[in-house]
């Protein structure tokens, strides 16, 4: 595959109830880029991710991954290259043990058990939860579940990681730990989030979405410091860039 370029060309999507969630989105993400997709609630971020993964089919436009157009015939091949971590890890963890959950993808690829085990161990090691491999997913903490959900995707050895609100419902320590894990990945990353401080720290590039359209696309520091743009998109400046709430000291 020619080098993990992710391209959306004039994407449109309308839900069956008539809600036009994506209104002509185009972008090109290069290999190794870490891109934040931000916007208010209902802006179309999650829909965009589902279009990229082929869960939803655009009513117009196309998704191209490494020069291969996403369609019914290429879906399976493309999904091996893209790994998506869902907003709610409970949707992603459906087996009885963490090991079986992480092994689900490699087993679906019909790898032999030795390879499956090697991939599972490697994925669990990368997210630091190898000791939890025999635990039942529902018994894990929110942070551990998130790590396990990421491991389920890593075991497929994707080139591109897509994460939907990865830090939501995490306590500060788990959030920091997850951010450190994500920082260590060399994959192309597409991250949607309302956690703008995390986006500021992890992403070099940000796309701001409003009403299903990209209203701004550029360097993270330029965009996240633009108060007017943030407010237009229904957002605020990242907390780390706001004035100190205790002493009022300006930044």
């Amino acid at each position: 595959m020619s080098h993990h370029i992710t391209e959306a060309k004039d994407l449109f999507y309308e839900y069956p109830d008539g809600h036009q969630a994506v209104n002509g989105i185009s972008f090109r993400i290069h290999h190794g880029e870490s891109v934040g997709v931000i916007g208010g609630n209902g802006a179309g971020k999650s829909t965009l991710l589902m279009l990229l993964m082929g869960i939803l089919v655009p009513s117009q436009g196309e998704v191209v991954i490494g020069e291969v157009k996403l369609n019914k015939d290429t879906l399976s091949m493309i999904r091996q290259r893209l790994g998506m971590v869902f907003q709610n890890p409970d949707d992603q963890l459906f087996m009885t043990t963490v090991f079986d959950d992480v092994a689900f993808g490699p087993r679906s690829l019909k790898l032999d058990e030795a390879q499956v085990e090697q991939r599972v161990n490697s994925a669990l090691e990368q997210v630091g939860i190898k000791h939890l491999k025999d635990r039942a997913p529902f018994k894990l903490s929110a942070g551990e579940k998130r790590a396990a959900a990421i491991a389920t995707v890593l075991s497929m050895t994707p080139d591109i990681l897509i994460l939907d609100e990865p830090t939501s419902s995490l306590d500060p320590r788990s959030r920091r730990r997850l951010m450190n894990i994500l920082k260590g990945f060399e994959h192309t990353k597409i991250i949607t989030s309302h956690d703008l401080d995390m986006v500021l720290e992890l992403c070099q590039r940000v796309m701001v979405i409003k009403d299903g359209l990209i209203i701004s696309d550029g360097q993270t520091k330029d965009i996240l410091t633009n108060k007017k743009l943030m407010e237009e998109a229904g957002l605020e400046l990242p907390l780390s860039l706001q004035n100190c709430p205790a002493c009022g000291k300006t930044k």
Binding site: I55, R79, L82, F104, G105, L109
Partner: peptide, 13 residues
């Protein structure tokens, strides 16, 4: 549906 999507994304056919 979301669980099924998660399965499909991991190669379930």
């Amino acid at each position: 549906q979301r669980v099924y999507d998660a399965m499909c994304l991991r190669g379930f056919i």
